[in-house]
Design a protein around this nucleic acid. Structure first.
Lengths: 214, 214
DNA sequence: CCCATAACCGTATGGCTGTATGGCAAACAT
DNA sequence: ATGTTTGCCATACAGCCATACGGTTATGGG
């Protein structure tokens, strides 16, 4: 076998160029030519790694979601080891998704732009749905753990609570991004904390790991 | 003055063609040429009524929002005259925004597609913000009225409640549209009703009109 | 009647798009 | 060393886009 290259690294490089373009110039500014230029490679090489523009966008979106999921997951693990209340762990982890500073605002824009295209693009919609299902499962697991340690009333429907929590977070993200003056990031954070307080009404009476949960 | 035409009617005609295209073929399918064809007029005439494609899209979005706002407003008025609880009036009015049937699903798609573009398009973002502010004001007014008639605890922050309610509705709309199997429209409706029940905890002890409120 | 003016149409155009293609350079197996 | 496979590039191309423009038609005021 001749000349080898790091396939994954190249694809990641292109995906980051896409995210960069979306963040700075908007989704419509993402063309194959501009992406190649932003990544510092030729158009031909982009084609070499992605059979079509659609595949390129899908990969960029998938990586963006994975990165966020990973960061949230890490945040949960860290707080869990520190012995925090599940409610507070979730609060901090979900707040990570809000446009609280420049970095997260940028991520929000990328995320929201892709979500907007998912309305018309079945491939993106599927990836979004998969990722959301994953997040909901983590949330439901955390609520379940909350029941076991006494933070949550046993009668609470974990799946329904997870669904509503995620919907609220996504709505807050949208509003906090598009209307920063009307819906401040802090207000969104408060709304999130308030909603969590309505689910986690009890006190933890025996420490239980939130392993696998958010 | 020579030959006259109904300016507003023409612009409405074009706006409806835009909505039609977004609903059936997606936002990217909206080109000036296709819009003209869908409206049954020439490209030149579209240009005659809109100086640019951006203006055309902005007008289409504005009309779509106004139409929805009006229908919700009418629903509120109707229920109000029928003497319903404010909580139930809001429930029905906001449920109007969910993709509960084919017609509302279509509207949802148009709305979500435009919202997605608002991320990158300041003009659309401004129109969206204005409309959202309007809706929030109506919601806050309804909560205020709820306090006066005893349905809502006096300590409740009406503005915050309105913000959170709208965020939840928008999040539910997105999820119910993109993941109909995971988040059914009925589940979204239940989530909405549940959230309203957390705000409207009391009983109405003296009938009060929700005039101006949602 | 008639003409000025607005409504309306058809087409031209320059630019940008995604993708196809052919060729050059590099490095591993032999 | 050398051939062959892969990495990588530059360019060509056909299609579609928004917009510009000139011409035609119809109608209200004089």
């Amino acid at each position: 076998m001749p000349r080898t290259a790091d396939h994954d690294a190249r694809r990641r490089q292109v995906a980051e160029a896409v995210a960069q373009l979306v963040a700075t110039d908007g989704f419509d500014a993402v063309t194959v030519a501009r992406t190649a230029a932003a990544a510092g490679i030729s158009v031909g090489l982009v084609q070499h790694y992605f059979p079509s523009k659609d595949e390129m966008l899908l990969h960029a979106f998938t990586l963006a979601r994975e990165r966020i999921e990973r960061r949230v997951h890490d945040e949960v693990e860290r707080a869990d080891r520190a012995g925090a209340r599940i409610e507070h762990i979730l609060r901090d982890a979900l707040a990570e998704l809000l446009p609280l500073d420049a970095r997260r605002r940028r991520e929000c824009r990328v995320e929201l732009a892709f979500t907007g295209r998912a309305i018309d693009n079945p491939r993106l919609a599927e990836a979004l749905g998969r990722s959301n299902a994953h997040v909901r499962a983590q949330l439901a697991q955390a609520v379940h753990n909350g029941k076991e340690c006494g933070e949550v009333e046993p009668a609470v429907d974990g799946n329904a609570a997870a669904q509503r929590l995620l919907a609220l977070v996504d709505g807050l993200r949208l509003h906090a991004y598009t209307e920063p003056d009307t819906v401040t990031a802090d207000a969104a954070r408060d709304a999130l904390a308030d909603q969590l307080a309505r689910v986690f009404t009890g006190r933890c009476h025996h420490r239980k790991s939130t392993r696998g949960g958010r």
